[in-house]
Design a protein around this nucleic acid. Structure first.
Length: 220
DNA sequence: GCCCAGGGCACTG
DNA sequence: CAGTGCCATGGG
């Protein structure tokens, strides 16, 4: 698919890490889960569904509402009625379908331990869980080596090296060229998202971009 | 007012 | 398998 290999990927990761620093994704309110004796990994699953095609800012509002209702866990989410759940997550958009996805998910999986041995294929069969959401759950909630691809990742590869491909192709490209290291998988995806919000936006802001020296975009 | 945001589903060709 | 319409809120 391209002549881009291991060196380029590691170099990209290093450059982003040096510029932005450690991101510590996925963001979770550990204090809340300590107080309520709930599992922070369940918040990651919930957040992964809420953030589908939605700004994180709006997701935070929904997460805040869920906290107030003590519903930021699989069990808590089961206890509230569907209509109530819709109201709580309204700020995250697409709230009717997301509420149904969440309800269905926490009925199938009673708690995070029920996901222990889940496969990617099994996750993808669940309504509302597509490739990206499945990979977010696998990587950030379950500590599995599954690289997450999103619109930012595709855009960045296109601009950097003129690479395009299907979700699975891009995913495979990253996984083939990266060390099998959880921290790198987690941080790399986070760094790509941060970078694409800052500089590699839909309308790119190439001035002061930390990747100018390795990017072909401006010269195309 | 328009554009966009840490996608996924259902349907079509 | 690739393309399209739809879902919805809040910030810039």
């Amino acid at each position: 698919m391209s002549g881009i290999g291991e060196g380029e990927f590691i170099n990209l990761y290093k450059k982003l890490f040096e510029f932005y620093g450690k991101q510590n994704w996925w963001p979770v309110d550990y204090e809340y889960h300590t107080i309520h004796k709930t599992n922070p990994r369940e918040e990651i699953v919930i957040g992964a569904i809420l953030t589908q095609n939605t700004s994180w800012r709006n997701v935070e509002k929904a997460l805040g509402n869920l906290k107030k209702a003590k519903a930021l866990s699989f069990e808590g989410m089961r206890k509230i009625p569907l209509e109530k759940l819709k109201e709580l997550i309204k700020p995250s958009g697409f709230y009717k379908q997301k509420a149904v996805y969440l309800k269905n998910f926490v009925e199938i999986f009673r708690n995070i331990d029920d996901l222990k041995n889940i496969s990617r294929e099994e996750l993808l069969k669940i309504k509302g869980i597509g490739r990206e959401t499945a990979d977010v759950i696998l990587l950030y909630a379950l500590d599995r080596l599954s690289f997450v691809i999103d619109a930012y990742t595709k855009r960045l590869l296109m601009r950097l090296w003129n690479i395009e491909g299907s979700y699975e192709e891009i995913k495979e490209l990253f996984e083939r060229n990266l060390p099998k290291d959880l921290e790198i998988y987690k941080e790399f995806h986070a760094l790509i998202d941060v970078h694409c919000k800052e500089f590699c936006r839909k309308k790119p802001v190439c001035k002061y971009c930390p990747l100018v020296d390795i990017c072909n975009f401006s010269s195309r």
